[in-house]
Design a protein around this nucleic acid. Structure first.
Lengths: 340, 340
DNA sequence: CTGTTAGCGCATTCAC
DNA sequence: GTGAATGCGCTAACAG
């Protein structure tokens, strides 16, 4: 249907293609009369400009790339929602690049480092290497990192050290001393960093209170409730068992709750558990946790990218926004048992 | 960097652009010698073809549109995973269109009905109108519906009538008679149909057993655990209360479990609950439910679309694939209490 | 095997 | 105000 081209419209309206183009981009210098005739022709032919042709001519792609670790992170949906909310009315197409391996990440980052690919790039939770950053900079394609950081690239992120610190301090203030830090693998192929940062915060809080760091109190488990459950069972079998667990993500925290329930370990009386992220389930389960603004972070990242796109040409200094985290004290944390 | 054009390569390799184009699309008729020279030039210039220009020239967009109700359906992630898995290696860009209002749906469907927009369209859980279907057909742009159905458009879906039937039959066979059907709003703005279909299955099972249909046993609640929880509280306050609830989605079923627990109604002794979807949480909570292949459905939909794209030109008859559903009997359903 | 050329559909100088 | 002409970067006949 819409096979009509700008030329057809021009012919029908008895004007030149240039004029049609002008009314299309409502250029001021077109007489009302001609404009009307063109509009009529457009409507009659059910014409709409060919996006690809426009893009080639304009030298823009009208496209934004969003790079996400779609399946590894459960929190991505919330972030993506925030992103989508902003971009939906921006006129940009949102193309999704899912990376689930380092190789794919490298490939995407390499191919995206061109204005010919996308006008801007939004990267969720995947830290680019220095080399990647260089390429992005050289290609002069605006990039915003969400939940990731690189000094040379704009970003929106949270202070994970602070988050880990808050969670641990909370437990310490309740009298806990044998606090386990349970996290997803600290060294993962995608070099997802927050888990390490949270560990730093954990250690910082411990150090502040003069509690010696016990390496056996740092345990890693694969992502997912299941893995955390098994890890927790092992933990609770220790003698003496920990009195508190700081899980680096809510999913893990829930796995810990599972194990505790199954073993008859009462929470929070015998075991305190604090999670991280504040996913919807956390509120429901009354899980004490560190709240991080998932939706917000996506939204702000997208907005920042649009801003960078506005100020085209001016490759200004990167803008970094750090959003606050907050400890939510719910029902899974309480004073440490006294029979230590 | 990659500002080099095909002309630059041609110049450097001392050949014509046509030849460069040939090696790019590894056309056979190029002498090994020339090919090597061109390849060298390409590498030296760090050249890569401009996607937009290619598309304009080829008359293809190399793009697939995926239309999703991103935020209303919790199951979309699983489906999208399936889609992504297939498309990631297809060479197509995957652009995401999120619709959360009828208006947006209409807008997207209208603008997508052109080959100029996308080479193919994948629609998740949003039934197009007859008018939409006509437009897609007229534009000759391949469309695959996932979890939705239209006679003229290819689709991958499940038999929701059967699902509703299975769930209800299961309850009936356990001796239940006062069975409530709890569902998301039957008439929703996006005209999402499965809830009605499941109701049909429910009624069919009832009818088969000669159990009179009681309109007060059909209750609607907004999406989400919370709303279901409130609805369930009201239900359990009835005298006599229902002995079983068939929730049209697992999230609702979980809300029912919440209410039962809070009111001290034991499940499954005093109340049987069966859900629908078999989301990850369902397995964990030991929820009896109707399993539907979320990931599979997305995967197959994407594969079907690619197939349609292969057989370009031939606008064959629509292909419909109906995937089986299955009742998973877990711990939330049991024989009806005898003290009726 | 390789080069020349004509589009693809639109935006945009530059004249008039 | 409007039109003719040029270019965006690449592919695909058509010649040679």
């Amino acid at each position: 249907m819409s096979k009509a081209t700008i030329r057809d419209v021009a012919r029908k309206a008895e004007v030149s293609v240039a004029t049609v183009s002008r009314v299309l981009n409502n250029h001021p210098s077109v007489s009302p009369f001609t404009r009307q005739r063109v509009m009529d022709a457009i409507r009659e032919l059910n014409y709409s400009p060919h996006p690809i042709a426009q893009r080639l001519s304009l030298g823009r792609t009208e496209t934004l790339a969003v790079v996400v670790p779609l399946f590894t992170l459960p929190s991505f949906v919330e972030r993506l929602r925030g992103v989508q909310k902003v971009l939906s009315h921006s006129g940009y197409d949102l193309v999704l690049f899912n990376v689930d391996s380092p190789h794919q990440r490298d490939e995407y980052f390499a191919t995206l480092a061109t204005r010919a690919r996308a006008d801007g790039i939004l990267v969720l939770s995947i830290p680019p290497s220095d080399e990647d950053a260089e390429r992005f900079l050289a290609a002069e394609v605006p990039v915003v990192l969400v939940d990731a950081y690189h000094p040379q690239l704009s970003s929106v992120y949270i202070d994970d050290v602070e988050g880990g610190y808050l969670a641990t301090r909370h437990l310490i203030s309740l009298g806990h001393r044998r606090i386990v830090y349970l996290s997803e693998p600290l060294n993962n192929p995608l070099e997802f960093g927050p888990m390490k940062k949270r560990l730093q915060g954990y250690r910082k809080a411990l150090a502040e209170e003069g509690i010696p760091f016990d390496p056996t109190c740092v345990v890693e488990a694969e992502p997912g409730r299941e893995a955390a459950y098994h890890a927790a069972r092992a933990l609770l079998a220790r003698r003496p068992p920990p009195t508190a667990v700081f899980a680096a993500c809510d999913t893990h925290a829930i796995g810990v709750l599972d194990a505790a329930r199954e073993l008859g370990v009462r929470v929070p009386e015998a075991l305190s558990v604090v999670g991280y992220d504040d996913i919807p389930d956390a509120a429901y389960l009354n899980l004490s946790t560190v709240h991080q603004p998932l939706f917000e972070t996506g939204r702000l990242g997208a907005e920042l990218l649009l801003t960078l796109l506005q100020g085209n040409g001016g490759k200004s200094a990167p803008i970094h926004r750090r959003l606050p985290v907050e400890l939510i004290h719910r029902a899974t944390t309480a004073f440490a048992p006294t029979d230590v």
